[in-house]
Amino acid sequence: MTERSEVVDLFGSTAELYQSVRPGYPPEIAGQLVAFHGDMPTSVVEIGAGTGKGTDVLARIGAPLICLEPDPRMAALLATRFPHVRIHGDTFEQWAPPAGGVDVLACAMAWHWLDPATRNPRARRTLTPGGTLAIFGHRYDYTEPDQRAAIRAALHAIDPTVRERPADWFHQDVVDHGQFLDVRKDVFRRELALDKERYLDLVRTFGPFLTRSPEQQQRALTALGRLVDEFGGTVTLDLRTTLVLGRAGRRTDAR
């Protein structure tokens, strides 16, 4: 799947809600990225920046930052939050990197929207020799096994076709494609307690929810709201954030 126009339409309508309820990323990702890179990068490009959840981290580096965001509604909000960042309204596939490449290519929660057959080699070609690929994203789970089981059963009853990707799947994706050297993975975890309104708003921003019919969406919200009431009005998420870093070798190292 790629960052096509249907993806733009999918998330653009939720831009304000997305910014309000989606959790941010651990700020220490910035320091780990610079340490892995070896020095201060001279250029950073972010794929699918959205409203800037990942940009919050990348801006901490202090290097010139370019954000690729094809949805005009999300890009407008991004520009308001980061007026000094250069924003390109291109998909990663459309964007032409500068001659010689960039030092850091980053992607937060958007790697799965890129074409699986081309995203790794395209990322490799975008980077300078020795440049850094940084992919990070959340996986939403539940601290209470009973809550996890009840929520998954309710959603499966509404749409049995929904499937979860394996945890840290993008780490395996980078390793399997063999385009990058010194690939490493770091995992951060924290608990996130949400009341019913906040939890249902978060669900409203998820791709699997947005791609379902209005009837299925309403059934899901009704079922989940009923469950949260039964849980005592609160859901506690086990928020797992994975950071994957890889180094681009010289051109002869690319496969």
Rank of each mutant, 00 (worst) to 15 (best):
1 M>I: 13
2 T>P: 04
2 T>D: 12
4 R>Y: 02
4 R>I: 13
4 R>A: 11
5 S>H: 13
7 V>A: 13
7 V>P: 00
8 V>Q: 14
8 V>T: 15
10 L>D: 03
11 F>E: 11
13 S>C: 08
15 A>I: 01
18 Y>R: 10
20 S>Y: 06
20 S>N: 12
24 G>P: 13
25 Y>W: 06
27 P>Y: 02
28 E>W: 06
28 E>I: 13
28 E>Q: 14
29 I>R: 05
32 Q>K: 15
36 F>L: 08
36 F>W: 07
40 M>E: 10
42 T>Y: 00
42 T>H: 07
44 V>T: 09
45 V>C: 06
51 T>A: 02
53 K>M: 01
56 D>M: 02
56 D>Y: 01
58 L>Q: 05
60 R>C: 00
62 G>Q: 07
65 L>C: 04
66 I>L: 15
67 C>V: 13
68 L>P: 01
69 E>H: 05
69 E>W: 04
71 D>H: 04
72 P>L: 11
72 P>M: 11
74 M>T: 07
74 M>P: 13
79 A>D: 11
81 R>S: 03
81 R>F: 02
82 F>W: 09
85 V>Y: 07
88 H>A: 14
90 D>N: 14
90 D>P: 02
91 T>H: 11
91 T>Y: 11
95 W>R: 10
96 A>V: 14
97 P>K: 12
101 G>E: 06
103 D>A: 14
105 L>I: 15
106 A>Q: 09
108 A>M: 04
108 A>V: 11
115 D>C: 04
116 P>S: 05
117 A>C: 00
117 A>F: 00
120 N>A: 15
122 R>T: 08
123 A>V: 05
124 R>L: 08
125 R>F: 05
127 L>S: 05
128 T>I: 12
128 T>V: 15
130 G>R: 05
130 G>S: 03
132 T>E: 04
132 T>P: 08
133 L>I: 15
135 I>L: 15
140 Y>Q: 05
142 Y>S: 01
144 E>K: 08
144 E>L: 10
147 Q>D: 09
148 R>W: 03
154 A>I: 01
156 H>S: 09
156 H>L: 02
157 A>F: 01
157 A>C: 01
157 A>Y: 02
160 P>M: 04
163 R>E: 14
164 E>Q: 13
164 E>G: 09
165 R>Q: 12
165 R>Y: 09
167 A>P: 13
168 D>K: 12
170 F>K: 00
174 V>I: 14
179 Q>P: 00
180 F>N: 03
180 F>T: 04
181 L>K: 11
181 L>M: 12
183 V>H: 05
185 K>G: 00
188 F>C: 04
192 L>Y: 09
194 L>N: 08
199 Y>Q: 07
200 L>K: 08
201 D>F: 00
201 D>C: 01
202 L>D: 03
203 V>E: 10
205 T>W: 03
205 T>H: 07
210 L>Q: 13
210 L>H: 08
213 S>H: 09
216 Q>N: 13
218 Q>K: 15
218 Q>H: 15
220 A>D: 12
226 R>M: 12
226 R>Q: 14
227 L>N: 09
233 G>L: 10
234 T>M: 10
235 V>A: 12
236 T>N: 04
237 L>P: 02
238 D>T: 06
239 L>W: 02
243 L>P: 01
244 V>E: 02
245 L>C: 05
247 R>F: 02
248 A>D: 10
251 R>N: 12
252 T>H: 11
255 R>A: 11
255 R>V: 14
